[in-house]
Design a protein around this nucleic acid. Structure first.
Length: 424
RNA sequence: AGAGGCGUGGCAGAGUGGUCGAAUGCGGUGGUCUUGAAAACCAUUGUACCGCGAGGUACCGGGGGUUCGAAUCCCUCCGCCUCUGCCA
């Protein structure tokens, strides 16, 4: 969430930033925050003064009791009774202001980067790079949902039987290819300097708030009612929350982590006729990369992460494009996001396979993730993350783009991982 | 899951109603000494909020309560340990 001090100091910039996201009453929203913070401060000042007085009276009483002057002590007590009533109500007011301030801040998104183009939907995203050539497929080329049946490598019906729609079962060479991709992605990430972690895939409420999925995306996560926990929608949540309530020393930076997890998304309301096969699932596998950086380094880190995604897509020989998300498509917590889409040739569609974002201090502020600078001051860090990569759509593109009469060719880099070079 | 025990500063570990933000040791930082290092000695060493400042307030797992006053007593939640049960 945003920092109140920054809102006060740079109000105009924040208003413009929120308006860029299409929030009409941005100024009113920020004024409310500032007013609540002001109320909070005033209430706290009054409360602190009263507490100070009550503390000193208590000490007096202690001293009097020790000297055996019970009568005098009783006299002084009358004032403390007064203060007690007063402070109880001040304390309630303070809690109320703090709670309202928190709620207000939870519901305000991050301020977009200057380079973020203004736009409403994904159609307004800015294409900034295109790499690789479209494959020339035969006239009878098939989309992946037909190919998986033809070669019996992914079974949606079985998934429906044991769970429901959007939970496919990978079989045989399909399962092996899936595992090959996971291992390839992890090896690439480790080689690029990311320390591998294997986090829990169920998280508590505090973690959900830490990275901003709560309260914003509550309805998109699977909730385990009996435990009040959530199935993770991305490894970003557990990995970034590793650093919740942490003050890092400078020599621990930069932090780079990579982790493989299944991801779970309810995708409520986002299903449609255009969504078929592997294009959108409730459960899918993903390797995620996360960085924690000093503020002045975070945009270099963002570039570094983008380069990493480009590199592995190139190695997989998949045609892809890089997009700068417009203000309307930008995630709630993000300042700047680049999406990567691969071209899936039989559907003739671009499929999003990665999203790389810099959140600056938005998550760190909630997480209380800081480091001690050279002056021993606590400074909020910047958090970043990116998919490297999400599996199903990569799988879809490989199946479609590499189909031949004789079967589906496995990209060179994956053959050591699959142990075969053809799905037939 | 049941019974019992426990949760204190970076770590270890005192503290069971007042002067305790908290002894002591270790670790960290600065200094003295030394050619340098070690040892020794001295000093310093949590976080957040409010305040121009002096300073004030809060925090001893989280929340609530009793009391003039709570690390200390009570309730509750969370976590950890031991034993019993179950189990990959």
């Amino acid at each position: 969430m945003l920092q109140v001090a920054n809102i006060i100091a740079e109000k105009e910039r924040f208003i413009k930033g929120l308006e860029k996201r299409g929030i009409a009453d941005a100024e009113a929203l920020l004024n409310e925050v500032i007013a609540l913070d002001d109320d909070r401060k005033k209430t706290q000042q009054q409360l602190d003064t009263n507490l100070s007085e009550a503390n000193s009276i208590s000490k007096q009483i202690g001293a009097l009791m020790k000297e055996g002057k019970r009568g005098e002590a009783e006299v002084v007590k009358s004032r403390t009774a007064e203060l007690k009533t007063l402070n109880k109500s001040l304390g309630e007011q303070l809690n109320d202001f703090q709670e309202r301030l928190k709620q207000a801040l939870y519901n305000i998104p991050n301020i977009p980067h200057d380079s973020v183009p203004v736009g409403k939907t994904d159609e307004d995203n800015e294409e900034i790079e295109r790499v690789g050539d479209f494959p020339q497929l035969a006239d009878n080329a098939q989309p992946h949902w037909d190919l998986i049946k033809k070669y019996d490598i992914i079974d949606f019906e079985l998934g429906i039987k044991i769970t429901g729609a959007g939970f496919p079962v990978y079989k045989g060479k399909g399962a092996r290819l899936q595992r090959a991709l996971v291992n390839f992605f992890l090896d690439e990430a480790v080689a690029a300097g990311y320390a591998e972690v294997q986090p829990p895939i169920v998280v508590n409420e505090a973690s959900g708030y830490g990275t901003g999925q709560l309260p914003d995306k509550e309805g998109q996560m699977y909730h385990i009612g009996s435990e009040n926990m959530y199935l993770i929608p991305t490894a970003e949540v557990p990995i970034t929350n590793l650093y919740r309530d942490v003050i890092l020393t400078e020599d621990a930076l930069p932090v780079r982590h990579a982790g493989f997890t299944p991801c779970f998304r309810r995708e409520a309301g986002s299903w449609g006729a255009h969504v078929r096969g592997l294009n959108r699932l409730h459960q899918f596998d993903k390797v995620e990369i996360v960085q924690i950086r000093k503020p002045e380094e975070s945009y270099d880190a963002l570039q570094e992460m983008c380069d990493h995604v480009s590199r592995i897509l190139t190695k997989l020989e998949l045609p892809f494009r890089k997009l700068r998300l417009c203000s309307g498509d930008l995630g709630f917590t993000s300042v700047l996001t680049f999406d990567y889409e691969v071209y899936s040739a039989a559907q003739e569609k671009w499929l999003e396979v990665s999203s790389v974002s810099n959140f600056e201090t938005f998550q760190a502020n909630r997480l209380k993730l800081r480091y001690k600078d050279e002056n021993k001051k606590s400074v909020l860090l910047h958090t970043l993350n990116g998919s490297a990569l999400a599996l199903p759509r990569i799988m879809a593109a490989i199946l479609e783009n590499n189909q031949t009469e004789g079967g589906i060719k496995i990209p060179e880099v994956l053959i050591p991982y699959t142990g075969f070079d053809l799905i037939d």
